[in-house]
């Protein structure tokens, strides 16, 4: 192969790598932004909600694979796993809102913010106590096929992760733009004082927001289990923090911004390691983000009014 073409493939391969990584950041960081839009605080338990969602997905997938294999084709099992997991994980989101945030709605913002951290630790230790510290291996929901196209390698799993993440985000966009509930969420993020006066209760919209965020995170968890099939109770911590960085970078409360920043973060991480020695990856990647924030303190799509917030 000519060096130039080889280099082109090399870049293309890394774009695919970055799209996969970025998909996870994007889908998870949306959860931060949605909650921020409605409650004006960051749900620091979100990384651990993702983790619990992954474990739920693991349980459902194991059961479905054991019961349904042979009866229905694999894509149906996959779809059933996603739907059931999403449903169950939504209740985790509702639980976090009702048990963790609602009692502290009038409390100082800082107290509400650290509630999330504590719920996160409670989730981690609960899983640890229930399942032990042993690593679990997420069962593959489809047979992996590796395609070699030109100079690049792409598996069907990778392609599926990228496509499903995009579909999820499009679905969420439709939900927020087209439905009554979505409109209520947008209204709440625009003015959280006036909207309850119009008869839209925060006690319905807030849990709904958490539920949607948790549902998305759990699907991300299933996809994560396909790409990186090793589960441990602390898997949500680092990913949660990085997705949080993406949420800030995208602009607080902006769902579009969170999604784009998630992909950007994936690209920065992958390409920094491509160009520079990988030892310097996080150092350079997060320095770049710091510089971006210095020039755009509100992130890419941060709204003007979000600066007079209480946190």
């Amino acid at each position: 192969m000519e060096p130039l073409i080889e280099y082109f493939y090399y870049i293309l391969q890394n774009i695919i790598n970055a799209l996969q990584r970025g998909s996870f950041y994007a889908v998870i960081s949306i959860g931060y932004s949605m909650v921020y839009g409605v409650l004006m605080l960051f749900n620091f338990a979100h990384g651990d909600i993702f983790m619990v969602g992954t474990y739920i997905g693991f349980g459902i997938a194991t059961v479905f694979l054991a019961v349904l294999t042979g009866l229905v084709p694999p894509p149906v099992i996959f779809l059933a796993t996603v739907v059931v997991t999403m449903f169950l994980a939504s209740w985790i989101g509702v639980f976090v809102e009702v048990a963790g945030y609602r009692p502290l709605r009038q409390a100082p913002r800082a107290s509400a913010a650290i509630t999330g951290l504590m719920i996160g630790i409670i989730f981690e230790t609960t899983i640890l106590i229930m399942l032990g510290a042993k690593r679990l291996s997420f069962p593959p929901l489809m047979e992996k096929v590796n395609y070699h196209i030109g100079g690049i390698y792409i598996t069907n799993v990778k392609a599926m992760i990228i496509i499903i993440s995009l579909l999820l985000m499009l679905g969420l966009h439709a939900f927020i733009q087209k439905t009554k509930w979505g409109m209520a969420m947008r209204a709440m993020s625009y003015d959280f004082l006036a909207v309850p006066l119009m008869g839209v209760s925060i006690n319905i919209i807030a849990p709904l927001t958490f539920a949607v965020g948790a549902g998305l995170a759990s699907v991300a968890g299933i996809l994560y289990g396909q790409a990186y099939p090793i589960l441990d109770p602390y898997m949500g911590v680092l990913l949660g923090w990085k997705a949080f960085v993406a949420a800030i970078l995208g602009g607080r409360g902006s769902i579009k911004g969170a999604a784009l920043a998630g992909y950007l973060l994936g690209f920065i991480e992958i390409f920094v390691a491509t160009v520079f020695p990988s030892t310097l990856r996080d150092f350079i990647a997060y320095s770049i983000i710091l510089i971006i924030l210095t020039f755009r303190p509100r992130g890419f799509f941060g709204m003007e009014h979000s600066t007079k917030l209480r946190l």
Partner: peptide, 11 residues
């Protein structure tokens, strides 16, 4: 705690 090694492995 990293789980994605794709850029390193591509290299």
């Amino acid at each position: 705690k990293d789980t994605d090694f794709s850029s390193q492995l591509t290299k």
